[in-house]
Every structure is written in structure tokens, then in C-alpha cells.
Amino acid sequence: MSCCGFISTFCVFVVSVQLICGVFRFLYQQFIGPLLNGKSTDFKKYGQWALVTGATDGIGKEYARSLAKRGLNIILVSRTLSKLETVAKEISEAFNVETAVIDVNFTSGPEIYDKIKEKIHGKEIGILVNNVGMGYITPDYFLSIPNRDQMIKDMIQCNVLSIPMMCSIILPQMVERKKGLVITISSLSAIIPAGCMTVYSATKAFAHKFSEDLSMEYGKHGIKVQSILPGPVATNMTRLKKGSLMAPKADKFVESALLTVDSAPYSTGYFPHVIFQVITQFLSFLMPSYLTSLTLKTMENVRNRSIKKGLYTPVASQ
């Protein structure tokens, strides 16, 4: 065999091995691992308390309920005190655990984090769920977003700043104990084309990237960091009222996502969303222009239906 032939064969071999390993790793993290090991995960090993931001509705509320069901005491952090107290009472009575509430508005300034520090003092927080977030009223072009400047500021405060600030508060005690779990709710829009959701998808890309690199830094200290990138979930924020195969209700989604904690550093959390991710990224590789056009047209259709129903009024583009 000639030198060139040997090099070509070796390159094909290396690429084949990488491909096979990559496919197996993907299948294990997203399907085999959750199926085999997901139900045996011991969440109480991380600590006595779990803190969930954005905990009164949707995915956040269901993370709080699911972790309480697994025996953890729950700290609920959200904006409206009355809703916090209602959810806290519901969880305490249903699962016989302790609960605590912290009412802060994550679109406010940095002073809210002083209040959070004060309220959690002395509590062994083993799990942090960075769930709080805000989205668009309906998909739209950047310059057509109503009250755009304020929306940008609020979304960055809520979707971006909250994540490193909450980690800054809670991560030190996890490192001291050499154990902890940080789950951050990103979005599938962070890694696939998401025109007409530009600011939102960019904030979720930050959430995903921050989680990836935080895991790299603190995995050696016993801290598990997971990024969850869901597709559509039936919640108040998405305005999807009925669950379906591709848009499950929040309780079904969270139970599925918790099965992936021990096997996947990042996941959509829900197997049909994994399939959607694979198809989308495959199309992005083969036909990027087609996928971009299809995505934008889909978002425009959602926008136009909302306008037609009188649910949304864009501003004139500048």
C-alpha cells in the first residue's frame, strides 16, 4: 500500500470511529441512559433543599413538585407572593416537605440578589433550577417588537443575568460540600434557527453556553451542571393549553427531563424533541437556506394569526 493510500485509509478509520462513538454517545445520553438509570437517580444526595426560580407556573412549578415528590425541601422564587404561598402550601401538603418562598422580580436591579442571599442563609441547597424566563408575546421581527427597548432590558435581566447571579450565590456552598446539581432551562431555539425570536433565542444561547462551560470548570468539584433545551411545552408562556406529543404538558416534560440528569450534560429533556432537534440540525447541514426559509415562514404565520385574532399589535418598523 502506498503512503497516500495508507493515510487515506487511516483517515477514514479515524472518522468512522469518531462517528460511531458520537452516535453511541448520543443514543446513550438521550435514550439508553435515561431508560436504564433515570428512575434510580437519588436527588437527595445533593442536599436537603432545592431552589427553583420562576416556580409558580409551568416548567418551574413542575420541577418544584417533582423534586418535592423525591423528598427535597423546596425554596420557591418568583414575582407574586400570593401565588408563591399558594404553590408552597400545595407542595407542602401533597409531599410532606418544608417549603420557603422568596418574592422578587427578576427584571429588577441587582438588589434582589441581596434579598435572596438573606432569605436562604443557613439552608443546605443541593439543587438549583434556573428556570425563570420571559419570552415574546408572539414571534416578530426585531424592529416591530412593541416597547422594544424596555423588553430588551427586561429579557436580559431575567433570562441572562439571573443565571450567573443565582450560581454566584449558591455555587460556593456546593463547592464546599463537593456536591451539587445545577439545572438551567435553555431552549431548543438556542441551537437551531429561530428567526422572529432573536432576543429570546440569544438569551437562551447564553444559558446553554454558560452551563456547558460551568460544567467544565466545576465538574471536578463534584458539581453536576445540566442544560435543558426544550422544544414547545404546553405552559402559560407558550400559550399552548392542551398537551400533545410534540408539546407535552409541563408535568410530563419535567418527569422526562429528570430522567436525563445522570446521563446527559445537556438534553432537550423529552425524546420527541430530541428527534425534532436531529431532523432540524440534519436539514441545517444539508439545506440551510431551505430550513431558514421554512422557519421564518412558520414564525411569520404564527405572527399573522395573532394579529388577525387581535391578540397582538406590532409597531411600525423603523
Rank of each mutant, 00 (worst) to 15 (best):
S289Q: 05
M174Y: 05
Y46C: 02
G133K: 05
S2F: 11
K179I: 06
T295D: 10
E90V: 05
S244L: 13
S144F: 14
G219I: 13
K115F: 06
K115C: 04
F106E: 11
P314K: 04
S211T: 07
F271A: 03
P288T: 13
A190D: 02
A100F: 11
L35W: 12
K204W: 03
F24Q: 07
K153P: 07
L286S: 12
L19G: 08
Y218D: 11
D154Y: 15
I169M: 08
I156N: 00
L76V: 07
F210K: 11
N96S: 07
S186Q: 05
N159I: 00
R239F: 08
N236P: 03
P164E: 01
V104S: 00
D57N: 08
F206K: 03
R305A: 10
F282R: 14
I20C: 06
I228C: 02
Q157A: 11
S211F: 06
S40Q: 09
D251L: 13
D103T: 14
P248V: 06
L51Y: 03
F24V: 12
T53G: 04
I191P: 01
N147P: 11
K179E: 06
A88M: 05
M237S: 08
Q173D: 10
G58L: 03
I223L: 06
Q173M: 11
S317E: 13
C21R: 15
V315N: 09
V15R: 12
K241D: 08
Y312S: 10
C3P: 12
D251C: 13
R25H: 10
T280I: 12
T298S: 15
N159Y: 03
I112A: 00
T292L: 10
F106M: 12
Q48Y: 13
N159Q: 01
T238G: 05
N304G: 05
C158T: 15
G310Y: 05
I59M: 11
M155L: 12
A257K: 02
F10Y: 06
A205I: 12
K119D: 06
G122V: 13
G33A: 09
G243T: 01
L229W: 04
Y312D: 08
E176G: 08
D149P: 08
C196H: 09
L72H: 02
H221F: 15
I307Q: 02
S66W: 01
G122Y: 06
G54P: 00
E124N: 12
G60P: 00
K89F: 15
Y113A: 02
L291R: 09
F253L: 08
P110F: 12
I91R: 00
Y266S: 06
G38D: 09
T280W: 11
G222V: 13
K308E: 09
L67T: 00
I170D: 07
T138P: 02
